[in-house]
Write a protein that binds this DNA or RNA. Structure first.
Length: 274
DNA sequence: ACGAGCGCCTGTCGGC
DNA sequence: TGCCGACAGGCGCTCG
């Protein structure tokens, strides 16, 4: 489910508490339950439980696709991977069968990490860079310029799509928004990164930012049974639209495999270079 | 450095 | 209806 806009949406919801009294900011943790052992990346279950109890949430932020809780002494970091989601409810409500970890706050709030596919991971660390340190720049960071982006593209000779998906190159992009941004910038997904002109790089960064901002405004994309609440799926131009008319030129959207990922593009708007 | 293949998991959907 | 393969918003690992 989650790429940058979905994680941003979830972060904002945890902070605002949906406008009622369920914000997690300033809450104190008084218990945790681990229901699927491998969800906890670090430290051991025993140490996790001992260390997290009594810590207070000072802030909640997003970095790339990670949720970052700044606690009194540590950072609680969550990655939702393919199918993770976060729910906040009371402690008496019945647990979802896909609940993998539970964190209880005083006096009666329960944050549940649900994750059908069990790919999600949670860390409790003193040094957040031990988890986040290798991430690339934030695409929506105002100090990240088209020149920076162009320079980074020139340093590699890689297919542009897998490069954008590489979280050490750029943080937060996933399969949906990458296909959408490449279509908007009219760049074929197999284009080599060092063959992209400055003007194209400028255009691509602008497209990435526009797609992300619109998706955040729409609270993300809801396609499957997994994530609900967003409606950016109505604005998708190529992702999941194989065979349908390209909204720009009306030719059929094609689907290929790039870097083991389903890749949707318009062969007319995004001609393969060379 | 780069790209392919595979593992991790469960659920859904389409075809036969 | 039932079974079986393909596929899924991610990422880390190994191997050429």
């Amino acid at each position: 489910m989650p790429e940058l806009p979905e994680v941003e949406t979830i972060t904002n919801r945890l902070i605002s508490g949906n406008g009622d009294q369920s914000s997690l900011v300033n809450r104190t943790i008084h218990d945790s339950i681990i229901l699927w052992a491998r969800t906890l990346a670090e430290p051991s279950q025993k140490e996790f439980q001992a260390r997290i109890i009594g810590q207070q949430v000072a802030a909640i932020n997003r970095r790339g696709k990670y949720l970052v809780f700044s606690l009194s002494d540590d950072y609680l970091i969550i990655h939702l991977r393919m199918s993770g989601d976060i729910l906040v409810a009371g402690q008496q409500e019945t647990l979802d069968p896909h609940a993998r970890m539970v964190i209880d706050f005083e006096p009666d709030l329960r944050m549940t990490f649900q994750d059908p596919r069990k790919f999600g991971r949670i860390w409790l660390v003193a040094d957040k860079d031990s988890v986040l340190g290798k991430l690339g720049p934030e695409p929506l960071d105002e100090t990240f310029t088209a020149s920076d982006f162009y320079d980074r593209l020139q340093r590699h000779r890689r297919q542009i799509k897998p490069l954008i998906l590489d979280q050490t190159f750029l943080a937060g992009m996933g399969n949906i928004y990458t296909d959408e941004a490449l279509h908007q910038a009219q760049i074929h997904p197999l284009t080599k990164s060092d063959e992209i002109s400055f003007a194209q790089a400028q255009n691509l960064l602008f497209s990435i930012q526009q797609v992300l901002r619109q998706a955040i405004d729409r609270h993300g994309t809801s396609i499957d049974w997994i994530y609900r609440g967003g409606d950016y799926q109505r604005l998708l131009r190529v992702y999941g639209r194989t065979g349908s008319a390209c909204p720009v030129c009306a030719s059929p959207v094609e689907r290929i495999r790039v870097g083991q990922r389903g890749t949707h593009f318009c062969p007319i708007c995004q001609p393969r270079p060379g």
